[in-house]
């Protein structure tokens, strides 16, 4: 199950960068010349004079995108651990609940969930005076809590399914050995089961994070000003069709590459037994 999950994630999210070794081959030089010519044409013939004016806002947008990514991944992972664990050992009502949650969230588009939370709950909340008077109200009138909630729920569902496979895949002998040492259930979980499961889930985690980065622009549809929203704004103000979009694609390419590099760094830090 875990290997199947990881192949699917690898197919839909970039998890490996081309290696630098053996990169320079004769035909690649020609291809790079063509690429350079295309880039030169893009710089020369397209309009980029708007760039300095909006650079500050673009940087802000990138920061908002990264904030969204990091916060929802962390929160989502914290939720994913119990969701995965419950499906492996929990009592059947909890098991059913977790499974239903994963099925529903994975079976509907994220955009719909986002709009359900923002427009649906957002229109429902003001009807309850208790909520309007609570200390949460100033936040509930903003858009970003709904974006964070939707992205977190989605990440928790996808990663929960991965964690289920990871928890189930930890060899039973290791857990039995821990119990034979007289560890309590909580200690077995904290010292053996969770670290081993996280270790098994790590390769998929990097792919899921890239997928999460690819879902963050959806929050722009509920008026969160991330980098996608900034680019949409630029397109409206400058009447340019392609240039801002090309820049946006380039920005996301760089962000993905950075993410992949960061994950590779951390994966190399973790010692593995190599046969």
């Amino acid at each position: 199950m875990t290997s199947e999950e990881s192949t699917i994630v690898e197919a839909t999210a970039l998890t490996r960068l081309p290696s630098a070794r053996g990169f320079l081959k004769p035909h690649r030089l020609a291809l790079m010349a063509v690429a350079a010519a295309i880039v030169f044409c893009a710089v020369w013939f397209l309009r980029w004079d708007w760039l300095p004016e909006y650079a500050g806002r673009l940087a802000n947008g990138v920061v908002v995108t990264l904030l969204m990514l990091v916060s929802t991944c962390l929160l989502g992972f914290v939720l994913a651990v119990p969701i995965g664990l419950v499906q492996v050992t929990g009592p059947w009502p909890l098991k059913l609940l977790a499974k239903g949650f994963c099925t529903i969230i994975r079976g509907t588009p994220l955009l719909l969930q986002l709009w359900l939370l923002y427009y649906g709950l957002g229109s429902l909340f003001p009807q309850f005076p208790a909520i309007r008077q609570s200390f949460l109200w100033p936040w509930l009138r903003e858009a970003w809590p709904y974006g964070v909630a939707a992205l977190t729920i989605s990440f928790a569902a996808y990663e929960g399914e991965v964690m289920r496979g990871a928890f189930a895949g930890v060899p039973a002998g290791e857990l039995e050995a821990a119990r034979a040492f007289g560890m309590s259930r909580w200690k077995v979980f904290r010292r053996i089961w969770l670290p081993r499961a996280v270790h098994r889930a790590l390769p998929t985690l990097s792919g899921e994070t890239v997928l999460q980065l690819k879902s963050t622009p959806l929050v722009a549809t509920i008026t969160v000003i991330d980098v996608y929203a900034v680019v949409s704004k630029i397109r409206q103000m400058t009447f340019l069709t392609y240039e801002p979009l090309l820049l946006l694609a380039l920005l996301y390419l760089c962000l993905t590459a950075l993410l992949v590099l960061a994950f590779r760094y951390f994966e190399n830090k973790i010692p593995t037994r190599s046969a």
Binding site: Y228, A249, Y252
Partner: peptide, 11 residues
């Protein structure tokens, strides 16, 4: 695989 579907769809 590196660029969000939403951006690709627009482009």
């Amino acid at each position: 695989r590196a660029v969000p579907e939403l951006v690709l769809i627009l482009l």
